[in-house]
Design a protein around this nucleic acid. Sequence first.
DNA 1: AATTTTAGTTTACAGTGTAAATATACACTG
DNA 2: CAGTGTATATTTACACTGTAAACTAAAATT
Lengths: 242, 242
Amino acid sequence: MARPSRASQLPNLGESIKEAAWRQITESGASSLSLRSIARELGITAPAIYNYFSDRDALVTALIVDAYASFGDCQHEARESHPGPGREIDRLRATGIAYRKWAIDHPHRYLLIFGNPVPGYEPPMQELLPVMIRSLGALLAAVGELHALGRLDMEGVPHPSLEPGHRFSAIMETADQAELPVYAVAMVIWSRVHGLVSLEITGQFPPFPDAGAALYLFELDSICRQFVLPPDHSATINRRMP
Amino acid sequence: MARPSRASQLPNLGESIKEAAWRQITESGASSLSLRSIARELGITAPAIYNYFSDRDALVTALIVDAYASFGDCQHEARESHPGPGREIDRLRATGIAYRKWAIDHPHRYLLIFGNPVPGYEPPMQELLPVMIRSLGALLAAVGELHALGRLDMEGVPHPSLEPGHRFSAIMETADQAELPVYAVAMVIWSRVHGLVSLEITGQFPPFPDAGAALYLFELDSICRQFVLPPDHSATINRRMP
DNA sequence: AATTTTAGTTTACAGTGTAAATATACACTG
DNA sequence: CAGTGTATATTTACACTGTAAACTAAAATT
């Protein structure tokens, strides 16, 4: 008995493996996923998985790619739900709201891609970069269009210069030099949003009901107030004078 | 041969185990630590460790407690390095600076206590709460004294109400109801600082030289500008009128 | 129909955490 | 000092993990 007849085996085993992996991850925590128990759940033997994923790491990478795709979809959909001129702030806020919603709906996926890496896992950047860029591209676009309208307040934001040889250099080399501060602002926004969300997801939060939602909305407001200039008003005027 | 003579064994084996564990963690990543390889490094057998730690989890807990203690020391030292009245902002900033410095000096310790938890590890809150409270107490004190001086701008900060039965309820029940917004502000500050630092530590950062330091200083400034009112000025005056 | 490829199985090996039984060095007691 | 008890290790054993190698039979191709 070396191979069951096709009738008795489920089609699309590759996808089934990933599904089982997600099921396990979402209940038993992040990196306690085991090839053997996946196989058990699917009624096959463990080495059979190696026909679809060369490695445990390869499986993890596939999961990460899927997670990034799902996250990226969610981000871009949110942004595109407020089309048209004059709604740039709505687009920025919508991506922010969607960020937390997706993270709370899929905490383990969030931690898988943005948390600290799985034990021995070294992420293959070449494979992950495209999906990473796309998923964070929504925020970048939202900030970028505000900048294009002259409505981005970059006061005090450090103007970065390129560092060659870094893992993310590929992203940056294509960018316009003049837009580098936009990246810096996006980075700050991302870090704030990530800070709150990751603390909330990992349970390191105060015992206040709806604290997550309330603090998150407060932070979105803070972000808009700090970085977004009011529309029109001809040029840049100092809006804060003590 | 069931037990080597005391001359040939190292004293304080309990501490030696933790040291070996740290050595392994700092080089081979967070949760790839193995009792057997610790034993190998110390020239003993694996089950001997069970005389000092009832579990692999117990060892991890001990490491976490130590990490919190080191982190807490660092935080309080930073705060106390600017004593005296009129230097409240210095104290707040110093704890902020120290926060990142400690995290960068001990990235694995940082991820161990503030990152996503180790695979199957369920943190024993009863044991960890005291060290957690103490370590975050420095920030809380820095924010609290500003509040006591009427220099804390809590505009828009959500006023939380208590939620019973939460893991952290013990902390909060002792707190003055009127000081709850102080906790909220401290929480926001912590989340911003944690967001930047955790992204920097896990390598999810743009390829800009010193981006971490520059963005971090920018965020500290943002925090002070948003939450700290200028001294004196009799009462509270609206400093932002558009 | 013969051959090759595909997609599984079985077997095996080196890891891991940990429970149970065992043995000995040391500290106490009679 | 002899005898006992306890602390601290070792040995052995078990269940679990990822994964490499050999093998086998179903399906596709020639």
